[in-house]
Design a binder for these strands. Sequence first.
DNA 1: TATTGATGCGGGAACGTTCCCGCACAAGAC
DNA 2: GTCTTGTGCGGGAACGTTCCCGCATCAATA
Lengths: 328, 328
Amino acid sequence: MDVAREAGLSKTTVSAALNGTGRLSPAVRQKAVETARRMGYRPNATARQLRAGRARLIGYVVGEFAGEPWAYLDSPYFARLTGATSAAALRHGYALVMLPAGTLQREWADLPLEAVIVADPVQDDPLVEDLLAARIPVFSDASVAGRTGAHWVDIDTDAAVRESLDHLRAGGARRPALVLPDSTTRFHRETLAAYRAWCARHGTPERVTLVPTPGNGPVVRAVEQALTADPRPDGLFVVAEASPPLVMDAARRLGLAVPADVRVICVSEDESAAHADPPVSTLSLRPADVAEEGMSLLVSALEADGDTPQGVLLTARLRARKSSMHRN
Amino acid sequence: MDVAREAGLSKTTVSAALNGTGRLSPAVRQKAVETARRMGYRPNATARQLRAGRARLIGYVVGEFAGEPWAYLDSPYFARLTGATSAAALRHGYALVMLPAGTLQREWADLPLEAVIVADPVQDDPLVEDLLAARIPVFSDASVAGRTGAHWVDIDTDAAVRESLDHLRAGGARRPALVLPDSTTRFHRETLAAYRAWCARHGTPERVTLVPTPGNGPVVRAVEQALTADPRPDGLFVVAEASPPLVMDAARRLGLAVPADVRVICVSEDESAAHADPPVSTLSLRPADVAEEGMSLLVSALEADGDTPQGVLLTARLRARKSSMHRN
DNA sequence: TATTGATGCGGGAACGTTCCCGCACAAGAC
DNA sequence: GTCTTGTGCGGGAACGTTCCCGCATCAATA
């Protein structure tokens, strides 16, 4: 330490002074602190981490949308999830490092990550496998439940789908259609299964439109396609993320009034749903709570150094919006 | 190294073997690699960083929206900027660490950051001052131009505003109104100045509506307020970020046809603008290019270890959309 | 005056790498 | 058979901290 030399003290003493530890006379402590300040000294974080044995860094990857690496942030759900995760991590004393989707890369093998969060992994995600093989703790969704070194948080898909379809039915919809992304994410797979089960229970034929790629365009086209089917559905459960006002636009273009002709629920965190014309009922996957609960779990697992897998299941929140019966 | 003991080799030899350096017989190299693999050895990244003297970590903060720390990701502009910055950083061999807005905190004093990106700083941002005082390289917008240890990338606001207003005028708008966030971000301040200058040049009275807080609701209300002014504006330059379809909804609710009654340009990266009814012309601040150019500049400045400040100015892109003259 | 105990500070090791050496040994040249 | 050159491997230092000690010094007690 050059501060030590400058102050005529030993590095031990300076370290103790700056950290407020050890037994030091007020005079010496003062002197050390003063010269450090004067010299603009900042302790080397890397050396600290090496000594401490931990870097307090957590990796963050979104498995879905692997095609266009960072497109997920365009989705309000992931934007919220990412922000909330980062906030929660910092509150627990960890920092979040943004990583690209894909396999465990040489690019970030040099990062001292204590764990990696894999949000919405695809089915049998190779990244998850690589991480577990490398003995790096993984935090993801329920698809990793039970595996050693893996923890998870997830949404009760079955309950969420049931509640949504029941709500549409209570509003009068007997023939609800489903608009679903063509993806292997756990939530989407389970949604399809739950929708089918619901239809079977109610003796309703299934009306599923798959959206090939993410983005407003494809979803709007899928909605139009779903609404022009014969017989026309009287309910719409849009699970693919799109701007809710655009879904309303699509219905309007087809001459359909919402909710008179067709009742709509969008799975979306987009705030514009509340201001759409008419307002759109949404099902929230509660990204903020997922991040909060998940991070608590991850941190406690990390501190406890526990390989014993843990997880928590949250329930989605339906935000039913009184449609203003706006004249079309 | 326990791998060295296990393989009956020295740590030097094992290190050389795993890194592919040094002069080693194929047999020994093979043996070292093999035992390392068998033992699941992963080199300690922190120790590597300490030895290398650099951590290849860059901090990322968004100065605007300081009230609700992570709300900025809700904005498509910042979502894109964040994703693109992260991608560019990784391509250059750096990783991005997400940090909360506000002053230089103890929370992340322990992170070995080589630089910090401050996107959209507020006026005289205290964070920027703290970072520069701590001799941490700062990357931000043109407001830090010329300061030692600070580099920047920015958009040519003046040209962007002029082009947009000229385009509205070419479409027939003689009385364009401005809807602007009430913020101290450089872009917003300069936008107001450029708008005023344009109005002065064309002998048009200024019509400015300030939006007190971010979010769709406040912006929509501001748009309605602007459109109900007397005399009613025949052009609208919406700089506050909102969902473009909602802006169209607002005009429609007021019985105004776009673009027949009022021509509209939204400053927005929201993809839904293209699918709105009618499609909305937008001014793109090109977050992807800003991230790309900015990161190149930052990395070269970092490698050159240069304190000599550098910057680059980009021009915004107007995406004029042929409105479909949709019957209202 | 000796013994104990507390106080104030510094020496040295350790964290896990990488890199500069030096040493041993073998092969080639004379 | 010696001298040189090259090859293969290991010892040790260094990166910048923190922490465990030990060694003085000094006051308080017997």
